[in-house]
Nucleic acid binder design. Sequence first.
RNA 1: GCAGAUGUGGCGGAAUUGGUAGACGCACAGGACUUAAAAUCCUGCGAGGGUUAAACCUCGUGCCGGUUCGAUUCCGGCCAUCUGCACCA
Length: 807
Amino acid sequence: MAYNFKEIEKKWQEKWYSEGTFNAKNDYSMKKWYGLIEFPYPSGQGLHVGHPRSYTALDVIARKRRMQGYNVLFPIGFDAFGLPAENYAIKNHIHPKITTEKNINHFRAQLKSLGFSFDWSREVNTTDPDYYKWTQWIFIQLYKHGLAYKATMPINFCTGCKVGLANEEVVNGVCERCGSPVVQKEKSQWMLKITEYAQRLIDDLDDVDYLDKIKAQQRNWIGRSEGAEVTFKIADSDETLTVYTTRPDTLFGATYMVVAPEHHIIEKLSSKITNMDEVEEYKRKTSLKSDFERSELNKEKTGCEVKGIKAINPLTGKEIPIWISDYVLITYGTGAIMAVPAHDTRDHEFATKFNLPIVQVIKANSDDIACDVQKEAFTDVETGVLINSGFLNDLSVKDAKKKVIEYLEENHIGKKQVNYKLRDWVFSRQRYWGEPIPMVHCDKCGWVPIPEDELPLKLPDIKDYEPGENGESPLAKHTEWVNTTCPHCGGKATRETDTMPQWAGSSWYYLRYMDPHNDKALASKEALEYWSPVDWYNGGMEHTTLHLLYSRFWHKFLYDIGVVPTKEPYQKRTSHGMILGSNGEKMSKSKGNVVNPDEVVDEFGADSFRVYEMFMGPFDQTAPWSMESIRGCSKFLDRVWNLQTMLVDGDEYSPKFEKMMHRAIKKVSSDIEEMKFNTCISTFMTMVNEFYKEKTINKAEFKTFIQLLNPFAPHITEELNKSVLGEKEDLAYQKWPEYDEAKTISDEITLPIQFNGKLKGTVQIALDEDEASVKQKVHEAIDQKLEGKTVVKEIYVKNKIYNIVVK
RNA sequence: GCAGAUGUGGCGGAAUUGGUAGACGCACAGGACUUAAAAUCCUGCGAGGGUUAAACCUCGUGCCGGUUCGAUUCCGGCCAUCUGCACCA
């Protein structure tokens, strides 16, 4: 007898969502739990089967928390600004607002069909002016506190379409749409000073419960390094060139310098440079490459000597040549390096190619370690000792670093410097479908934020979303919107026409959920105090270095200005693995391996879908989709449904199942906390197999079983609770089952016996049986196999194993 | 290239974190039920050898080496795959 999931699931969903069963309560005296999933971008393709993996996982936890008596906030919303909607609009001439609304309606219906316990009364949408009013408000606060500034930054510029492109739209250096070459074009952009928070973003990781791999990736991305800045004089000039190095100890070995092709020194000294044509040509070639291509190590090094100018090594006093090369990035450090080919792999490669001198200044402290620096750079920091380095000779690398920095500081030619790989956040987009940046430019007053009581600055309703000429935003064409008056002096002024990146809205959405309809503040003080921080945030590993870091940055800023009560937004962060197509590749239309969740729900039901996604593999690892395997989960739920045919009376667990029941409660309770959902499901399956084997289950066992299963398969279990057990109260808020530790422990143990670590037999012993007695039993069981062997040693690990070392 | 992860039967995976490798599921095979099929229920299922059947023996967790009474688990070195790299979200 199969259960009618179509009817049953629909019935419960209608009840839940019309009654608001799962809405958070406004009773701030209750203990709270705030669970968060990354709100989706409502794409035209609809929900991906990957979305429900994360949502089901946190839904399971949220449902368990309600049963544990928490006031649960488990909200949902839509991150709806973005490129795809805009590109669709350009192609099909449908306003992004319309497609976005349509897509959200589709997503909402899909999400409801899966029975997630979201609080739909708090739904947010980043494109709603009532929402982005506060995104703009935060930007203005950032500006007022000096954390938003204008800088000239390169954008990808398509030489064919004459428009700015996102990185994603650049494929192998050409425009995705027209195939024309893409170049880097300088443009004045809004930047956010995330680097000001770099140290705190590292330090405060100690106070949060993130997976270690997430912390590691954030730390590496921020990339703190300690070193020195050293200033090199340019011969016959007042100009200087400052470099950043993590190896100031090798300064005596600096035989040339390399600057990024964009470095300002080139312009400043252009009159002295004798091969400007060559330099310009190299710069032009570089502008075709991304930073990513430029930093690839295995590619052949390229470069060009800047002739006519020389730098002076401040320690040796020698003149050294200056080169430009694209492996030096303008965005890191000072955009210039001192090259020590003897002790840096990249410098060595470069020096070898262009025949530059290699001077050894460090040797190994042991003759056993080979180091022919003409052949290969010697980079070992631990075993190195300084040579050919004047006052640094015979020091270890560590001591030499210290001493040379002291020297540099005393002589005002350098200083100790901490550097971060993290760069400031380019916050401007030359696009239509984003939050307008609420700034006005006045010739007299400069940049002026619009008054806060005029927020939101609404995105004008335009029809031509085509990017403007020369990489301008589409908004730039709408002069009636652009031209305005200066809020400061009342004179003529123009609006900023760039919009914000999609990251803006998602950097603070978790705050809005706490009080989504507030029109006086982004959320009330009381709501922020009660709900902060998010207790558990789950999302993809791919968001670790961008979204997660950006939102931590914004949160810390809001903390600094007294808006939020906690230093960190998220107390705990976990991640889910991607779901791949059945061929083990990423799902994509072109590969034809996309699974539509609607079809799966239609064929197997929401509960089967949810159980399968939890069962398919370890939660934080990628897993391929399998239509065959989901059938197994659907079969499992049929077997659960049919347990009712073997149901007997009983208020307590029967002796034959008692241990299994207590163990199951213990295991499922802790596995959910550890996100080991796959082993929860296998526990349920094993239990059902046991009930089938005995062809009986009593009411007490049945009740506990459906309670444990409820967070995973809420519809079928609520139905069984009502129709079979006749309960009036839904499972959703019933108390989570408890177990008795004493009843999970066996008093008898099957003890494995090994010879040299290999299993040779087993023996039954009592729990904590004394060793002499165990030894006797083991030898009774195994002695015949010991014939002809010499016992060297016997090892007994209490209640675990008995190993006999034999010869 | 840099950074983070992963590698166990035909397949997805489990293993109390150093202690019986392969739980649970899929696929497959056999049986029961049925006129029959589907569904359902029951049984078997790492490889090789061995036995009428068992017992039993050997090998086996990407590869090479190490530590240990004992290694999927710890250490060193390789190889392969996946994810991110700042304007996709």
